[in-house]
Write a protein that binds this DNA or RNA. Sequence first.
RNA 1: GGCCCGUUGGUCAAGGGGUUAAGACGCCUCUCUUUCACGGAGGAAUCACGAGUUCGAUUCUCGUACGGGCUACCA
Length: 510
Amino acid sequence: MSDSNKIRVRFAPSPTGGLHIGGMRTVLFNYLFARQHNGIFVLRIEDTDQNRYVPGAEEYIMACLDWCGMHPDEGPHTGGPYGPYRQSERKEIYRQYAEQLVQAGHAYYAFDSTEDLEAMRIRFKTAQNPAPQYDHSLRMKMRNSLTLAPTEVKQLIESGASHVIRIRVPENELVGLQDMIRGGVNFNTSQVDDKVLLKADGMPTYHLAVVVDDYLMKITHAFRGEEWLPSAPVHVLLWKYLGWEDDMPQWAHLPLIMKPDGNGKLSKRDGDRLGFPVYAMDWKDPKTGDLTRGFRELGFLAQAFINMLAMLGWNDGSSQELFTMQELIRKFSIERVHKGGAKFDYEKAKWFNHEWIKRLSPEMLKPDVKKILEIKGIKVDDDALLERIIALVKDRCVLLPEFYDQTKFFFEAPKQLVTEPIRSKWSLEKAAFFVDYCLLIQTPGPWDAAVAESIFKNLAAEKHIKPGELQLPLRIMLVGDKYGPPVFDIASVIGREETVKRIQYGIQAL
RNA sequence: GGCCCGUUGGUCAAGGGGUUAAGACGCCUCUCUUUCACGGAGGAAUCACGAGUUCGAUUCUCGUACGGGCUACCA
């Protein structure tokens, strides 16, 4: 494939806060598509709204992509031949195209103030039309270069009067587009309003910027959320009016991710309300200082997060649900993306993580587990030991932090023993058994789970006590509670001396 | 209100004119394990509705209902 027809996609977030799973899924689909076709994945920062700009959000977005291993081929930090990749730094580019549109009669200057606009909306509001739009039916009633005398317009502009440039949407024309997911979608332009293209501050709106930049950056396939579908005719019109129709990218409007309960698209609030993450990573709002927890910090593996994201609205047609990034790159197809929105299910998300923890080797899990333990003040230097422990417990950890609860007793004796389950059945005979058991295991010789178990069972048989009656007490002495991997494995790992110590302490406590 | 997009169990979903309508999550039962999980075996539960086309519609068409999105000098 030559460079001229190379597939180029872009993820174009606006840096206004945390990156939620919908955004991350858009990145993922872009990334998969690019990699599958050996194309270019561009990151473009859409920071045209100065009011909503949040410092740090761009770095945060980069970090999220980094976590998931989806590195842009071009972008503000990587550079590239079509930069700059921040729209705020491209401000000067947009004006000329807006002016070009005005010259061609496809756009016009509008001088209406916010108050004018508000008054218009109130004045023309009826039961049939509760939200009047600045469109073909109303534009001749407003203050713009269509209604004002050319000399007046010229004078207003020269005097620096605040104004915007609006697209002049034709009346009663059919505008259609082919969507890769939905097929043909048609609109009658009479329903489309004269969207602002260039704002009073000289910044473009999304509508102008997305078209200009997609053209200039040679984007071939444009993926975005379904919420953009209604404004797609504006974009199609712009591609046409700018004379770039042949270069228009193929569109794919992705289904929305919905709230698990009730209705509407998923928002950060739902996560707060229902107790699950919505953002990829922890996000601290620099203004309020509020911390919103992310999937990563709550203990999700990047592999699981990606896998979960991919299955939200896509499948390969088989019943396979577990995919590596490489498999996804190979198997992804935009045609198999669902049309309907999917309700987010946190239980299922956790299931993916659990599956990935089970699937990954102790060695691969080790860095994450080390981090978890270090946070809790446990530093492990013996890698082989740690891997052995991880192998023992990983099947019972759903989220990474659970590795702490599942492994802490390997490193330190339980501080408190939960004795309720065994106290009532505790007896002098059992105490004597454990005293003897300690004596027996202290004699030199090999030490592993099998040894610990056979000594235990032989002694129990000798004393005519059912081994089952003894195992739970042993577990509680070693672990402190009724959970964890097989008890003799634990004894084996912590060693005979520590086992003896804990048993002796346990006998005291009971 | 208008425009646009959707609709297979509670959730994610496969399928697509004739099927016992896959599979997964969750839930329940049993089993393994004298811990907790994992694993294994089962179970309950679905084609929104109405017309039409057809020998036959969950599948095609049209309506309706319902859900969603948009309707900003936000993206």
